[in-house]
Amino acid sequence: MDDPDLAWLRRVADGDEGALERLYARHSTALLRYAQRLLGDREAAEEALQDTFVALWQGAGSFEGRSAVRTWLFGICRRQALARAGRHREESLPVDYAEAFPDGAARPDDVVLARADAAAVGAALARLPAAQREVIHLAFAAELPHAAIAQLLSIPVGTVKSRLFLARAALARALPGATAVERSRR
């Protein structure tokens, strides 16, 4: 596996603080957004991010290479955020979650999503089941491939694809203009 972060991770395992700072600079923004999506609270997300990098510092030598370092970091972050959330996991997402979606899509439902009002997208995302929201975020905001998402969530790749399909379909139906998109697909 040609992973540009692997050399940095090995240096972290050897106690190199500069390498830890490098990995933090490369991944902290995406990890913080992910933790905030999971927790719904910026302060709790920042604490989960800090816990993620403490765990990275302490466990860098245990990396087995079964995934990309970035995927491994998202797994650590997910565990830290969910441990912090406990049983009272936040189910709603902030409106700025819509920023995670690209605006140059070719399919009609993608065009509707890209042009939709941010508040409408945020509300539509909040109505999705948590499992679909998480897959949407990992695929679009974190830009993880389907196989990495499947490994991170311990689900089959087909389940990742199904959740993405269902989430995108639900979002297209929930957003203004979706009716025309649905008619054009028939």
Rank of each mutant, 00 (worst) to 15 (best):
M1W: 01
D2Q: 06
A7F: 05
L9Y: 02
R10Q: 09
D14E: 09
G15D: 07
D16W: 01
G18Y: 09
L20A: 03
E21L: 10
L23T: 01
Y24T: 02
Y24N: 02
A25Q: 10
A25P: 00
R26Q: 08
S28P: 01
L32C: 04
Y34D: 02
R37T: 10
L39P: 07
G40H: 11
R42N: 03
A48R: 12
Q50C: 08
T52R: 07
F53C: 08
F53Y: 13
V54K: 03
L56Q: 04
L56P: 05
W57E: 00
W57R: 04
Q58T: 07
G59R: 15
G61F: 14
S62G: 15
F63T: 07
R66C: 06
S67N: 13
V69E: 10
R70I: 05
T71N: 04
W72G: 05
L73R: 09
L73G: 09
F74I: 09
G75F: 13
C77V: 12
R78W: 14
A81Q: 11
A81R: 08
L82Q: 13
A83C: 13
A83I: 12
A83E: 15
G86V: 12
H88A: 15
H88W: 14
H88L: 15
S92K: 03
D96T: 13
P102W: 04
D103H: 08
G104H: 08
D109G: 01
V111P: 00
V112E: 08
V112H: 08
L113D: 01
A114F: 07
R115S: 13
A116E: 07
D117V: 14
A118D: 13
G122L: 11
G122F: 10
G122N: 06
A124D: 09
L125S: 12
P129H: 14
A130Q: 03
E134D: 12
E134P: 00
I136M: 15
I136Q: 12
I136N: 04
I136H: 07
A142F: 01
E143L: 11
L144N: 06
P145G: 09
A148K: 06
I149V: 14
I149Q: 05
Q151A: 11
L152M: 11
L153M: 07
L153V: 02
I155D: 03
P156M: 10
V157A: 10
V157L: 07
T159M: 02
V160F: 08
V160I: 05
R163Q: 14
A167C: 07
R173C: 09
R173N: 04
G177F: 07
A178K: 00
V181M: 13
V181E: 06
V181Y: 08
E182R: 02
S184R: 07
